[in-house]
């Protein structure tokens, strides 16, 4: 695809361009893959439901540590009653979607890349071609759609666990008044700005990017074990960069 002598910039641009074209291929194949709806459901199970444990655990700890840190800092200003508010806003707007997407890239993205890469390496994709089954519609699109559907749901679950964790530390351990904690939160957090534009929209965008990168890397990997290993690494690296860069862009548009 690219010559070895090309420098990093040209190689990256080539990858980005190829990735963009691949997105068009996938989108064009979405109608054809409707008959593989069952496969999409199965993939939502694999990339979504199987990531629940890690997402819920991490959400809980992130919420707890935020509660602890904010309580410590806010107590300087005598503002510990705002702990719940700041925990909720920080999680909804940034940590929820971003950390969930990073976890998702590490947990589900890599497995999708490795799976497709190995299917390529063991001729399974060619075998599908030969059985007159379009591997884009049967393999790539369901995994892509599953990621796009699963990530917002995971993000929301992460946020719920985070708020719960913040409540656990703030109210149960550090003794902030329960009513204060909730009423300050409900008074300040806005459905549209913090949940729709924060968690849902960002997670949706990250879902598209992470799934696309994972499927693309798997699909274009050289069919060797070394190729699969590199592709998996590239999925994590490219996803992480893309998530954080896109987060900045989205935030600057939404704020």
């Amino acid at each position: 695809m690219t010559a070895k002598g090309d420098n990093v910039v040209i190689r990256s641009l080539t990858q980005i361009g190829a990735c963009g074209l691949f997105l068009l291929t996938i989108l064009a194949a979405v109608p054809r893959s409707l008959r593989h709806g069952r496969e999409t459901v199965r993939q939502i199970w694999f990339v979504g439901a199987m990531s629940l444990t890690i997402v819920m655990t991490c959400g809980l700890f992130v919420g707890m540590v935020l509660g602890l840190q904010l309580y410590d800092v806010l107590s300087i200003f005598g503002g510990t009653s705002a702990t719940g508010t700041v925990v909720a806003i920080a999680i909804y707007r940034e940590l929820g979607p971003v950390v969930t997407a990073l976890l998702f890239a590490g947990r589900a993205g890599t497995s999708v890349t490795a799976e497709i890469g190995l299917m390529r390496a063991t001729d399974q994709l060619d075998a599908m071609e030969m059985m007159a089954v379009d591997p884009i519609a049967y393999v790539a699109v369901p995994r892509f759609l599953a990621g796009v559907v699963a990530l917002p749901l995971l993000g929301v679950v992460f946020c719920a666990m985070g708020v719960f964790g913040g409540h656990l530390v703030g109210v149960t351990w550090l003794g902030i008044d329960n009513g204060t904690f909730w009423s300050n939160m409900t008074a300040t957090v806005d459905v549209h700005k913090d949940i729709v534009n924060g968690v849902l929209l960002k997670s949706f965008a990250f879902g598209i990017v992470v799934s696309l990168i994972a499927v693309f890397q798997g699909y274009t990997t050289p069919p060797t074990s070394e190729g699969v290993a590199y592709a998996t690494t590239r999925t994590v690296v490219a996803s992480s960069i893309a998530i954080l860069a896109l987060d900045f862009v989205l935030t600057s548009f939404l704020i």
């Binding site: 299917m119 001729d123 399974q124 060619d126 075998a127």
Partner: peptide, 9 residues
Amino acid sequence: LFQNSALLT
């Protein structure tokens, strides 16, 4: 028939 069988794992 593929050389390495290519069964769907």
